[in-house]
Amino acid sequence: MGGLGKEQDRNRIDVFISYSRAADSRLAPAIQRGLSRLAKKVFRTRALTVFRDQTDLSASSSLGSSIKQALTEARFFLLLASPAAADSKWVREEIEF
């Protein structure tokens, strides 16, 4: 991959999933699993590295900065656009960022 070192390539985020926990608590993990397995090469752990808050964040005071860092590093932004997501303050902030 052009210009990326092995460590950077291994830790990159391919997809950031933005969703409503209330509405998409079953769909978001299924999409994450599917994207991780999509066309996976035999020697790789996963095809794509997918960021989802419930699996990739720990409880911390820097939650906002962790989300912003993940959004900055992600190659793609995937929005699960449910009515509940449209009403979510956090989803709106992720979109605006």
Rank of each mutant, 00 (worst) to 15 (best):
V42P: 09
E7I: 14
L27W: 07
A59P: 12
S82F: 05
E73Q: 12
K89V: 13
A85Y: 06
G34W: 13
R21D: 06
G2P: 15
S65D: 09
E73D: 15
A47K: 06
A39G: 09
R33L: 11
R33T: 11
L71N: 07
A59I: 13
F16L: 01
A23W: 00
G34Y: 10
I13C: 11
I13M: 02
L48I: 02
D87M: 12
A86T: 10
D24H: 00
I95P: 06
A81P: 03
S88C: 09
S20N: 07
K40Q: 07
L78K: 04
S82Y: 01
G34V: 00
T55Y: 01
Q8N: 14
E73M: 13
S66D: 08
R33N: 14
A39T: 10
G2T: 15
G64V: 13
L4D: 14
F77E: 01
R92G: 04
I13T: 15
I17P: 02
G3Y: 06
L27T: 09
G2L: 14
A85G: 01
R46H: 03
A23R: 11
I17Y: 01
Q69K: 10
D56Q: 05
G5T: 14
Y19D: 00
K89L: 11
R12P: 03
V42C: 04
S25V: 08
F76Y: 12
Q32Y: 08
L38T: 02
F76M: 02
L79V: 06
E96D: 14
D53S: 03
K6L: 15
N11V: 06
T72R: 11
I17W: 05
Q69V: 07
K68N: 10
L80E: 02
L79S: 05
A74C: 14
R33S: 13
T72H: 09
K68Q: 14
L80R: 04
K89F: 12
A59Y: 10
W90G: 01
I31Q: 05
A70D: 04
S18W: 07
R75M: 08
P29S: 03
Q32R: 15
S61H: 01
R26N: 13
M1N: 12
I31L: 13
S65Q: 10
S61Y: 00
S65A: 10
G5Q: 05
D9W: 15
A22Q: 14
R26I: 09
R46F: 07
K41I: 04
L27H: 08
S36W: 03
R10G: 05
S58T: 13
A70W: 01
S25F: 12
K41N: 05
R75V: 09
V50A: 05
D9L: 15
P29W: 08
R26E: 14
A81F: 10
D9F: 15
F51S: 00
Q32T: 11
S25L: 11
L80N: 06
P29D: 03
R33V: 07
D87W: 10
D24K: 02
